[in-house]
Structures are given as C-alpha cells and as structure tokens.
Computed example of a mutant assay.
Amino acid sequence: MTEPPELDSSSDGGSVASRRNVRLLVAYDGSDFHGFAESHDVSTVMGMLRATLEQILQTDLDLTAAGRTDAGVHGWGQVVTGMLPDHADLVRVQRSVNRMCAPSIVIRSADWAEPDFDARFSATSRAYRYDVWNDPQPNPLLARTSWHVVEPLDVDAMNVAATHLLGEHDFASFCRRPKVGEGRPEKSLVRILQRAEWHRVALEDMPDSLLRFEIAASSFCHQMVRSIVGTLVDVGRGRRDSHSIPATVAALDRSAAGSVAPPTGLVLWHVGYDGRRWDA
C-alpha cells in the first residue's frame, strides 16, 4: 500500500446511521495469500481489501463475501458487501483500491445495493472454473493459474463421469466435513449441481493442451470442487472408470473419491443472485 488514500473531505467517515450498503465485484490472484477470509497474523485477500478500504475511508468496516476460497485459489467474480459511509464516492474508492492493491486485488465494479442485499446469504448459485495444463512440458505463463498434468487425459471419459454428479446429491464423498460442536447435528452436505463440463481452450500453437472444467451449483462445501476435479482427472488418466462415480457418491466417504486437486487452477468465476436459494 504505497499510494496515499483519496479522501472525501466533506465528512469524517460517517456514523453507522449514515451508511449505505455497497456491492463490490472483486477479482484477485490468490497465489500469495493464505486464502480469502481474514485470519490472524497471515496475509489474506479480505484482510488486505478491508484494510485498504479503511485507510481510504478513514473508518472501521465490516465486510461479507459470497464465499471463502482456500490459499492459492483465485477469484474473478467474488462479491463483497458492507456498510460504507453514504458520502463515499464509489468511483474514487474503486480507483484508489485498484491503485493500492493491483494487480493482486482489483475491484471490477462498485455499486450501492439494497439494504437487505448480502453477498453470502442472497446468493442463489456459484460457478467455478478449473484449468489443467495437459502437456508433457510445463507452461511458465500459466503455472500460477493451472494444474500441470503430464499424462494425456481422456476428456470424453471425464465428461461422462461428470454427468453422474449432476442434480441433487449428498456430496460427503467430495467434501471435508465441517466441525460441529458437541451435541450439535452434522451440517448437511447435500447440494444441487447444475453444471459440470470439461472442454479444451484453443490457444495459438497449442490447441489441445489447456483443459477447462466449468462447474456450477446452488453452493459448494469445503474442497468440493477440487475433490471433484481430482476424481475426474483420475478418470481421464484411466485410473477410474467413468461409470464408477455413482458408487463414489453413494459411499458418503471422503476416502472413496480421488485426491484433492491443487488450488492453483481454481477460480471463483461467478456468483448468481437470481431466483430463490434452493434451501430457503
């Protein structure tokens, strides 16, 4: 944070009573952060974003994000909400944050939102992308944003396997179970998967090497996408049969699925707010 903040001299930051809800669309390279959510004594995306906004606006802020991403995971469509002083010039705020935090963190857009809009609890869907560099040789230009898999992958088999995941299932085999307090019921890992599809991304001189997995659901549990990717890549390598996925889902056991894919290839791509939450 080397640039001075752009302050609006018309106010001292605003009281709680003179604040408005803001909706920020945020992109970030998660390579050098210990995840998105704030955590004590480590650098996180939200920690840097909040500290920067507080420096610009000269007031304490409480921010909410649409979802947490693990260390090394990236974001293109992360949504953040919070109550900002109502005098804030959002164009200036966006420009100041981007000057101070880019290229690691960028606010793509900033708009005032309805008072009851919440980045997390108003969300009705989330979409991720996962990139795999499938070539014998590494690609230094994509190393921070893709998983390098040397063995040739059977994309057709991976897509057949992915179709078995569509719809409403208990995804316990693909999720890290959340900790619950003693005497409390376990949290449901039932989710509705709306899209799960692999395709090749054409690059000049390398038309077949970059593979992209696009997945969308009502919501995701911890490490669900990376576990699914790891399992489907096992199918592409020939280590699993594409029609074995229903049995993996039915097992409700994390050991039944493949290993967790590395975080480098994962991007939180889009958060949807249309319609109703499936669990409302």
Rank of each mutant, 00 (worst) to 15 (best):
T2Y: 09
P4L: 14
E6C: 09
S11I: 01
G13N: 08
V16N: 06
S18E: 13
R19Q: 02
R19W: 02
R23Q: 12
R23P: 00
L24V: 02
L25A: 10
L25Y: 06
L25Q: 11
A27C: 02
A27D: 06
F36M: 12
A37N: 11
A37Y: 04
S39G: 04
H40L: 13
H40Y: 10
V42D: 01
S43V: 14
V45Y: 08
M46E: 15
L49T: 03
L49Q: 09
L49G: 04
R50Y: 01
R50K: 15
R50D: 01
L53I: 10
Q55W: 12
T59A: 12
D60P: 01
L61E: 04
L63D: 05
G72F: 11
G72N: 06
G72V: 08
V73S: 03
G75F: 03
G77K: 08
Q78Y: 05
V79W: 09
V79P: 00
M83W: 15
H87K: 11
V91W: 06
V93P: 07
V93T: 10
Q94I: 01
V97K: 05
V97C: 15
N98Q: 09
R99E: 06
C101L: 15
A102K: 09
P103D: 03
I105E: 01
D118S: 14
A119Y: 03
A119L: 04
S125Q: 10
R126G: 00
A127M: 05
Y128N: 06
R129G: 02
R129E: 09
D131L: 14
W133F: 11
N134F: 07
D135K: 05
P136A: 05
Q137L: 15
L141C: 01
V150I: 15
E151T: 06
D154G: 09
V155M: 11
N159L: 05
N159G: 08
A162F: 11
T163P: 00
L166F: 09
G167S: 08
E168I: 06
E168A: 14
H169P: 05
H169W: 07
A172D: 02
A172T: 15
F174D: 05
C175F: 12
R177Q: 14
R177E: 12
P178T: 12
P178F: 06
P178Y: 07
G181K: 15
E182S: 15
E186L: 14
K187T: 13
I192M: 07
I192L: 13
Q194P: 00
A196W: 13
V201W: 01
A202G: 00
D208A: 11
L210A: 09
R212G: 04
F213P: 13
A217T: 03
A217F: 08
A217H: 07
S219Q: 08
F220G: 05
H222D: 00
V225R: 11
V229N: 03
G230K: 11
G230T: 05
T231G: 05
T231S: 12
L232W: 07
V233C: 04
V233A: 07
D234F: 07
D234K: 09
G236T: 01
G238P: 01
P246A: 03
V249Y: 08
L252V: 03
A256I: 02
V260A: 08
A261Y: 08
G265F: 09
G265L: 12
L268E: 02
Y273K: 10
Y273G: 09
D274K: 13
D274Q: 15
G275Y: 11
A280P: 08
